[in-house]
Design a protein around this nucleic acid. Structure first.
Lengths: 223, 223
DNA sequence: ACCCTCGTGTGAACGGCGTTCACATTAGCG
DNA sequence: CGCTAATGTGAACGCCGTTCACACGAGGGT
């Protein structure tokens, strides 16, 4: 835009924008250094003035995509009626899960970009992954789980590590339906399954115990 | 091996073997046409006499890897004591899930190869994905779920689509711990989480209902 | 007003990749 | 024994990420 002959103006921003556009249409595989440079109208080597490597470009783009996931979740959480605290907690955990998978269905390219390769757990709280709502996707989940504890639907015991279990189920379902074997299911079936996944998580989390070493699988079955 | 000057003997087999070796060490990204040709001692173009494209090579390798997953599961299922039918069902579903994630941990390269991009649901029954046990990983899961129905732990209603839900949770957990943000957890924590995931699935599956349209999310909460 | 520095963009090059195609080789069959 | 069809070769194409010496010019110090 503000191209003053030799210099570009805001190349970094322009590359990120072009990257998001490419990823939206073709997923992370469609984001190449040379292609972005071409779109922006700059030599490929110029990219390296703003990003250490291709991988770092993708990481930065992923954080942007994560913030969009967070906002998609936020929108649904905000729509949950706040009357009864218990109803809200149930609604919030569902909203978080459904928001995650619906984003994956509506923007598969961005979704695959966002969770292509996750950093470590520290990245779950990276500021750049927060949306306009001020939270990362992971923090959205934490909030919903906390609400379940508050209303007594989840014990403090079982709250520990619950993020991992809930995320696993919803993320796995999203992957399987976006690029996995469940991708060709019709929309209604997928929606029904999604609802059951979050229900399975909420109900299952309340019961799968932290108590006792689970070294003997199938030990504490009744509980 | 049986290289008689110009001809190789069994190039296809040799390429698949080399591919498995490369994938074991470096994952599917490490499997390149040119590298395999180099290892086997043949021109890159020769690969195309046996595989349509790079992608098909990876698909064939993936089926081989899937059969290994199936056998890893089988080993654990076979170890479940067969005394009480109910105990066996609980043990089988756990064995299937734990077998899946333990394989992912022991052979992350092969695991990522096996489930890099899943075909569609038809591939779940592809003969080439069966191990020595005669089952694909998906069929292992089906068997365990059937057993849960048989002992009355799962209704016929909730049995429908249960593969998708169970697979989602376990697959998501495997992904998160192999190449995701949970990858740097210590072994004990991971093992504990794994046990809880399968417990969450078993207990949650029994309750997350198929009854009624879930068009209003959060509707059937109490159940 | 000048110059100089430093950040930014260029162009050419390197090695890697998947893939194609005309061509060489040879196993096996009629 | 000769033909055919299958199999392997070598060179080439266009893509990729990355590097490096170099060109440009905005902005600060004198």
């Amino acid at each position: 835009m503000a191209r003053s002959g030799y210099f570009h103006g805001d190349l970094r921003r322009a590359l990120l924008d072009a990257g998001l556009e490419a990823a939206r249409a073709e997923g992370p595989e469609g984001v190449s250094v040379r292609e972005l440079a071409r779109v922006v109208g700059v030599a490929p080597s110029a990219v390296y003035r703003h990003f250490e490597a291709h991988e770092q470009l993708l990481s930065d783009l992923a954080l942007r995509a994560q913030s969009m996931v967070a906002d998609a979740m936020e929108e649904r959480v905000a729509a949950v009626p706040t009357g009864d605290r218990r109803t809200w907690a149930d609604g919030a955990i569902a909203a978080v899960g459904i928001g995650y998978v619906e984003f994956a269905w509506q923007e598969p390219g961005w979704f695959r970009l966002a969770f292509r390769t996750h950093g470590d757990l520290q990245a779950a709280h990276d500021e750049r992954g927060r949306g306009a709502c001020g939270r990362t996707p992971y923090e959205q989940l934490e909030r919903a789980l906390d609400a379940l504890v508050e209303v007594g639907e989840l014990t403090e015991q079982n709250r520990a590590g619950a993020e991992a279990l809930a995320w696993s189920a919803v993320h796995g379902f999203a992957m399987l339906t976006v690029e996995g074997p469940l991708r060709s299911l019709d929309a209604a079936t997928k929606a029904s399954f999604a609802a059951r996944v979050v229900e399975m998580v909420r109900l299952g989390l309340a019961q799968c115990g932290t108590a006792g070493e689970p070294s003997t699988p199938g030990g504490a079955s009744g509980r």
